[in-house]
Design a binder for these strands. Structure first.
Length: 262
DNA sequence: GTTGAGCGTT
């Protein structure tokens, strides 16, 4: 049974934390335990996972009892192929309290004595959430969450500073409307609308382009014109090298027309 | 079913 990180840090005193990066999203502490335990005494293994989905973030923390063992594990497991992916093992740079640590050694003793009381849970949480997501395609999905959190914070802060019923109400309503509208529009209403809008705009332009090339001064037709001219120039630029039939000199060219079109 | 820089939970 591996209750690594399930019930919180069991014993983080005199332990050295190793940061394991590049691990697969399906890798579990159980998979890393035998690997790391082979090189030393592993006290705890923790894999940060997402609060919403619960999936791992792609890195894990392995705590060793001794530094020499941790160093050995780093030297041995760094660059090792795990689950078809090369993992990166290195000493943790920051501790659980976001404090700097030395060689994976946690300096929480000072933190505990210095500030037994937590500063601000809200701030800590907010920062965590904000920092948690950065890239990945899932960002599209969670972008809304991030915005919501920020908006909420902003509203609260503003309200605290000065109470303005008229403004507050107006903004609040707007926000609510926006959120509701966003949710309603999500299924499929504004999406196709917005998509079709720009498309139609370009359609007529291309049509009118060939009709009145000299009258149109838009960059769009101009570009096309230039392109056409370039093609023309290219064709007549090297009449010797290129054959109109494509037979003499180059039997490999199927047809110059294809080249220009492509 | 998916993704890939980075630093952590009761």
């Amino acid at each position: 049974m591996s209750h690594f990180g399930r019930a919180g840090p069991p014993d983080i005193t005199d332990t050295y934390s190793l940061l394991v990066l590049n691990i697969t999203f399906r890798t579990t502490p159980d998979d890393l335990f035998p690997l790391f335990d082979k090189y030393g005494k592993v006290v705890d293994i923790f894999i940060p996972r997402d609060r919403r989905t619960g999936e791992s973030r792609g890195f894990a923390f392995v705590r060793y009892k001794y530094a020499d063992e941790a160093q050995k594990a780093v030297d041995r497991l760094d660059g090792r192929m795990v689950d078809g992916r090369e993992i990166a093992v290195q000493f943790a740079k920051y501790g659980p309290n976001a404090e700097k640590i030395q060689k994976g050694r946690i300096l929480e003793s000072v933190s505990k004595i210095k500030s037994p009381r937590r500063r601000h849970r809200d701030d800590y949480r907010d920062r965590d959430y904000s920092r948690r997501r950065s890239r990945s395609r899932s960002l599209d999905r969670y972008d809304r969450d991030r915005y919501r959190g920020r908006d909420r914070d902003y509203r609260r802060r503003s309200r605290s500073r000065s109470y303005t019923p008229e403004r507050s109400r107006g903004r609040g309503r707007d926000r609510y409307d926006d959120e509701r509208s966003y949710r309603s529009r999500s299924p499929g209403s504004a999406s196709p609308k917005r998509s079709a809008s720009p498309r139609r705009s370009i359609s007529p332009r291309r049509s009118a382009s060939p009709r009145s090339p000299s009258r149109s001064r838009s960059p769009s037709p101009e570009k096309q014109n230039v392109d056409e001219r370039a093609a023309n120039t290219r064709r007549s630029a090297s009449p010797k090298a290129e054959s109109p039939h494509g037979g003499a000199g180059g039997s490999r060219s199927p047809s110059p027309k294809k080249s220009v079109e492509a």
